[in-house]
Design a binder for these strands. Structure first.
Length: 366
DNA sequence: AAGACGTGGGT
DNA sequence: TACCCAAGTCT
């Protein structure tokens, strides 16, 4: 394959005739083939907003049950704004990218305080909200308010790359801007929300990353990649770097039916979430040394160490090679601030990231 | 600009 | 096992 060149800096806007075909064929196809999804029941901006945040980097099938639960727990923007942080994060438990939930909660509070609970319908206002980037701005404004604003996500970039044989690397930020200029020309006046969704729906159902179903594509007749038999070569995308491997230790400390849990730091991986006490800089083979260091730092003493098992967990950028170690805590003067005893049968009330749920399952089969 | 930030599913 | 992907945003 050719090197990843900068491609042409110039944007070749589609002709009026192509625009016409894409608009008509896509909207008709969407009308007949769109999936019945819970966030398509109505155009409540709050509901659209929640769905767009949940759907970031997350599959539709994964989101649906979370969405249903979240909306029945926080039916209105006011109810979410008034909710406790722990309740919001608990509702997000297991979905991943937890800063989404915190940003959403914070932004919703801002909307209630500054805009009387009405989600802004201006680009300048809504794009300032935490967690609302260029894509989500366009999605909310077009879907909820029928504004003619581009909503260019990964689907749309893939569709455009093929439709117009755009050779740019779609992992580059500049590429999205180019795509937005094309979208601006393509979006019809009549139904911007449906058109943006149709574009994404096409990317999800027909113009898929692998084995695109070109034979069933409503815009096959104007697709340059299909005409050239190059649909499998596009879009171009830089290969992702593989996750860095890190040794970590989870410590399992139980006494009288209670277990020691740890609140994670406010910054970084799994911020604010509950966890088992975790030693992240394990690296060495000598766990005893690592433990001594850990105990010194926390000003505690751990004894009777037993290895309870091993576990691998792969995040998008880190590969945790986990060792589960059981230990006893020698009576100490004071517990670290971030530690807390909790009854085993109350573990389910706290929000643990999935990696810790997996570990707990292995340890106590809950 | 490139890396941080979760998780589960498909090949 | 390994790798890619999924309605991105923040720093």
């Amino acid at each position: 394959m050719e090197p990843m060149n900068k491609a042409n800096n110039q944007v070749l806007l589609p002709s009026d005739q192509v625009v016409e075909v894409v608009q008509q064929n896509l909207l008709e196809w969407y009308g007949e083939n769109k999936r019945d999804l819970p966030w398509r029941e109505n155009k409540n901006p709050y509901r659209i907003w929640v769905s767009e945040i949940m759907l970031q980097q997350t599959r539709v099938d994964t989101v649906i049950p979370y969405y249903e639960r979240f909306l029945s727990r926080f039916p209105t923007i006011e109810s979410l704004a008034a909710a406790a942080d722990e309740d919001v994060i608990k509702a997000w438990e297991g979905l991943g990218y937890y800063s989404r939930a915190r940003n959403l909660h914070s932004a919703v509070k801002e909307v209630v305080a500054e805009y009387g609970g009405k989600v802004p319908d201006k680009v300048a206002q809504i794009s300032k909200l935490k967690g609302v980037g260029p894509y989500t701005t366009g999605a909310i404004l077009s879907i909820a308010y029928d504004k003619k604003v581009p909503a260019v996500d990964g689907n749309v970039m893939r569709v455009f790359s093929r439709l117009f044989t755009i050779e740019d690397d779609i992992s580059q930020q500049s590429t999205r801007k180019k795509m937005e200029r094309i979208a601006e020309k393509l979006i019809p006046e009549s139904s911007p929300g449906d058109f943006n969704q149709a574009l994404m729906e096409l990317g999800a159902m027909v113009c898929t990353p692998q084995s695109p179903k070109c034979l069933f594509c409503p815009v096959q007749s104007v697709c340059k990649a299909y005409q050239q038999g190059r649909e499998s070569e596009l879009p171009r995308k830089k290969k992702a770097t593989s996750p860095k491997s890190v040794d970590v230790i989870f410590v399992w400390i139980v006494s009288e039916n209670k277990v020691l849990i740890e609140k994670r730091p406010e910054q970084g991986l799994l911020a604010h979430m509950w966890s088992l006490p975790t030693i992240e800089q394990a690296k060495k083979e000598n766990y005893l040394e690592v433990f001594n260091e850990f105990c010194d730092t926390k000003n505690i003493q751990l004894t009777n160490l037993i290895i309870r098992g091993n576990l691998d967990h792969i995040f998008s950028h880190i590969h945790w090679k986990i060792t589960l170690v059981q230990a006893d805590l020698k009576k100490s003067v004071s517990l670290p601030d971030e530690w807390e005893w909790i009854a085993l049968n109350q573990l389910h009330t706290r929000a643990f990231p999935n990696v810790y749920r997996k570990a707990l399952q292995q340890l106590v089969s809950i």
